[in-house]
C-alpha cells in the first residue's frame, strides 16, 4: 500500500537518508527502530511530504507522491501523529481534533468525529480544554484522534510512546492495536527494540540513515544483532 523506494534525503549538504526502501501492506503494523538521530523521523516526514526527498519514490496505492505537497496526503488516506504530539497548543481539544478533518466535507467529518470519540472516550471530558494544558498522555490521545479524523488507511506515528508513563504506554499500545483492527495500517518508529517489534507485524532497523535489517516482528526480536546491541543480551544467552 505505502512504499518508499530508494529514498534519499538531505538537510542542506548533509545526507541523512541513504537509499531507504520500506513497505507497509494494508492492515499491517510496521515498526522502524533505530538509535537517536538515525533518521526515523525523517523517513516518516519524507513519506508524509513534510520533507521533500532529493531522490527516490514515495508511492501510496500505486500513486507517486514524492513530488506532491503534504496537503494531498490526508485526502489520499495518509495522516501522521508527529513527534511530541505537536497539537495546536492554544486551541481547544475539539478544534484540534476537527482540524484533522480539514480536507474533508463537514458531514463526513462529523461522522468520523463520533467514531473517533467512541474509539477514544478518554478525550471526551476534555473537549473544551486548551490542548496545551493537558498531560502528555492526554495530548497523545488527542494527537491520535486528530490523525484519525482524516479517516486514514495508513497512519504514521513518530515515537508515540515518547515521554509517557508505563501505564500510558500500555494504553497507547492497545489503542494502536484497536485502530489496526479497524483496518488502519500503522507505520511507527520507536527507539526501544522490544516495544517496537513485539507489537508489530514487521520491522526495520535503521542505522545512520540506512536500513540495515528488516523482517517480521519476531524475527527482528530474535536477530542476534538486535539482541546484542539493542536488547543488551550476550550471544550465548540467545
Amino acid at each position: 500500500m505505502l512504499q518508499l523506494e530508494r529514498v534519499n534525503v538531505h538537510y542542506g549538504a548533509t545526507r541523512v537518508l541513504w537509499d531507504v526502501s520500506m513497505e507497509v501492506g494494508a492492515g499491517e503494523i510496521v515498526a522502524i527502530m533505530g538509535p537517536n538521530g538515525s533518521g526515523k523521523s525523517t523517513v516518516l516526514k519524507a513519506a508524509m511530504g513534510l520533507k521533500k526527498p532529493s531522490s527516490g519514490v514515495v508511492r501510496l496505492d500505486g500513486e507517486e507522491l514524492q513530488a506532491r505537497s503534504a496537503t494531498v496526503r490526508p485526502q489520499r488516506g495518509m495522516s501522521i501523529v508527529l513527534e511530541r504530539r505537536r497539537l495546536f497548543p492554544r486551541m481547544s481539544v475539539e478544534e484540534n481534533v476537527m482540524l484533522g478533518a480539514y480536507t474533508r466535507k463537514t458531514a463526513e467529518a462529523r461522522e468520523t468525529y463520533r467514531w473517533v470519540l467512541d474509539l477514544l472516550p478518554e478525550i471526551k471530558p476534555h473537549l473544551n480544554a486548551t490542548a496545551g494544558k493537558l498531560s502528555g498522555g492526554q495530548q497523545q490521545m488527542v494527537a491520535i484522534a486528530r490523525g484519525l479524523m482524516a479517516n486514514p488507511r495508513v497512519l504514521l506515528m513518530d515515537e508515540p510512546f515518547l515521554g509517557l508513563s508505563p501505564a500510558m504506554v500500555k494504553t497507547v499500545c492497545s489503542i494502536m492495536q484497536m485502530i489496526n483492527e479497524r483496518g488502519v495500517a500503522i507505520l511507527f518508529n520507536e527507539q526501544n527494540a522490544k516495544l517496537s517489534f513485539a507489537m508489530s507485524h514487521r520491522g526495520y532497523l535503521l542505522e545512520s540513515g540506512r536500513v540495515v535489517l528488516s523482517g517480521s516482528g519476531e524475527d527482528m526480536l530474535d536477530h542476534p544483532e538486535v539482541r546484542r546491541v539493542y536488547l543488551g543480551m550476550r550471544e550465548e544467552a540467545a
Partner: peptide, 10 residues
C-alpha cells in the same frame, strides 16, 4: 501555532 502540524492535516 504549528506550521508543520498544520501542513500535515492538509
Amino acid at each position: 501555532q504549528d506550521a508543520e502540524a498544520a501542513l500535515a492535516v492538509g
